[in-house]
Design a protein around this nucleic acid. Structure first.
Lengths: 280, 280
DNA sequence: GTGTAGTTTGAATCCTACG
DNA sequence: GCGTAGGATTCAAACTACA
């Protein structure tokens, strides 16, 4: 009886966030989400990247690099403390059967991965997003930076029953077991959201295919998918298309406005049903 | 005059280690190497991996997994302290123009990468070794673990003049700028060193092609290449073949014995000269 | 020698039930 | 809780056997 009651409260607690775009401080909002209530988290945290000089192409056109306001941190310590806080909250709100994905580049993913281990999240895979069309290294002083890293982890070492749609992912890989290297082009052309001046709205908008792999491999229909740094809402868009519930959190009003338009333009499960006929 | 003298001492200091296989505690020996004396370091540190259960194939044969004696650590803290120590020494002995490569899997690379940043090594690239023939995931509960990660870094943020043989690497990539994803099969067949019973001598022997990319991209002929966890000495073998000086350190007597045979069987620069005629 | 089928095996935090 | 034992699962490449 007590347990039932507690579960009802818990369920009610998370219900008010479901299918909402929440414009608020990510950490503050995560703290309001009940324990053990989320099936899947996808997080693309700020990159701790602050370019001292602007980057210019050889032809003197400016490269629109990552230098947004949300990307300022004093140093490693500040960043580590911040990551520990939001990762702990993510771990707390994950169901026992839930998993979390975090994406990053070499600027931040090592720190993030180390902290994930420290808080007790249990790595299932490190997945490499191999970009078919990365930005080349203009100076010829390094290798083309052609990858980003995703870490997929469960709530803790002994957590049982996480979702992995093995057979479905196999279908996506010509009938062979899906590997941890994913070949996906960067987000551009029609998918890329731009403002009226044609400027990119978000400096690191993720391609929908990446989120499709994430969401279809590790969640079920009806599951709750949460993104604490939602940006332009690719996670929510893909979640909605494939019949998942979603919670999108971002501190930037501009992103939230764009997300609202984007989410409203998507009809539930349309693409999922379409592809269902073809492949599922 | 004073500077000249200091340089002479420094040079003499490192000379006694050159082209030597040193069977000793890695950290202790690194401390004896002079400051600013090494051009290139390749490190494949122990993986902080300890297998709890044995794994059996579907056909009831046992998987010969990694469970060596050198791979026991009490936990993260112990491992972190150990890594900080050897990485600090590596940074100290690197020339201003020198660089370091560290390889690892998701079990350890996040901790190692975080510590590399903490001690002030400056990341140039994270390179993904994509394995053409990884061990599959037998249970179908995760993605095939198909990659390992290499981190390439210079001595500190403002270090100038590191070696990157851009044009040569371009040749290895069909005339296009070399990317940070490298497609290399795991070490097996003739290259794999086995004992009289046909058993693998080292559980994680690296393929020569991987070391070829590392050494040819980031060192010059005559440079000093050091490996603090040399194992069966693939780093030394490739260094010798391509006309680099080498210092191999490993604590295991068995490995050192095998390395001696291996290094003696290689004639200096033979392969390099051969390939020079063909490609360089 | 050549081609084909069968065998072997590689850095893995691979499951579940039971005592 | 934990440790242990039983049992279900896999892909690519090198190597072997044999026609």
């Amino acid at each position: 009886m007590k347990k039932l009651s507690k579960n009802r409260v818990k369920k009610k607690g998370v219900n008010k966030f479901i299918n909402k775009i929440i414009c608020a401080d990510s950490l503050k909002k995560l703290k309001e989400i009940p324990d053990d209530s989320i099936d899947l988290i996808f997080a693309d945290p700020p990159y701790n990247l602050q370019l001292k000089n602007e980057l210019w192409r050889p032809n003197q056109t400016k490269v629109d690099a990552v230098n947004d306001d949300w990307d300022k941190y004093d140093g490693f310590e500040h960043y580590d403390r911040f990551c520990k806080k939001w990762l702990k909250e993510c771990q707390r709100i994950l169901k026992e059967t839930g998993t979390i994905w975090v994406i990053g580049s070499y600027h931040n993913i090592f720190r993030v991965g180390k902290i994930m281990q420290d808080v007790g999240l249990w790595t299932l895979n490190d997945v490499t997003w191999v970009k078919s069309n990365p930005m080349p290294n203009f100076m010829g002083t390094r290798f083309t930076n052609a990858t980003e890293t995703l870490i997929w982890a469960k709530k803790h070492e002994n957590a049982k029953g996480y979702t992995f749609n093995y057979q479905l992912m196999k279908k996506f890989n010509k009938g062979k077991q899906m590997r941890s290297d994913w070949y996906i082009s960067i987000c551009n052309s029609k998918e890329r959201i731009r403002d009226k001046e044609g400027k990119k709205v978000h400096s690191t908008q993720k391609p929908e295919k990446l989120l499709r792999y994430v969401i279809l491999s590790s969640s079920k229909e009806g599951d709750i998918v949460l993104d604490p740094f939602a940006g332009t809402g690719t996670t929510g868009a893909v979640a909605k298309k494939y019949g998942r519930k979603w919670i999108m959190i971002d501190n930037e009003e501009n992103y939230c406005k764009i997300m609202k338009e984007r989410m409203n333009s998507i009809k539930d499960r349309v693409v999922w049903l379409e592809e269902h006929k073809l492949r599922f």
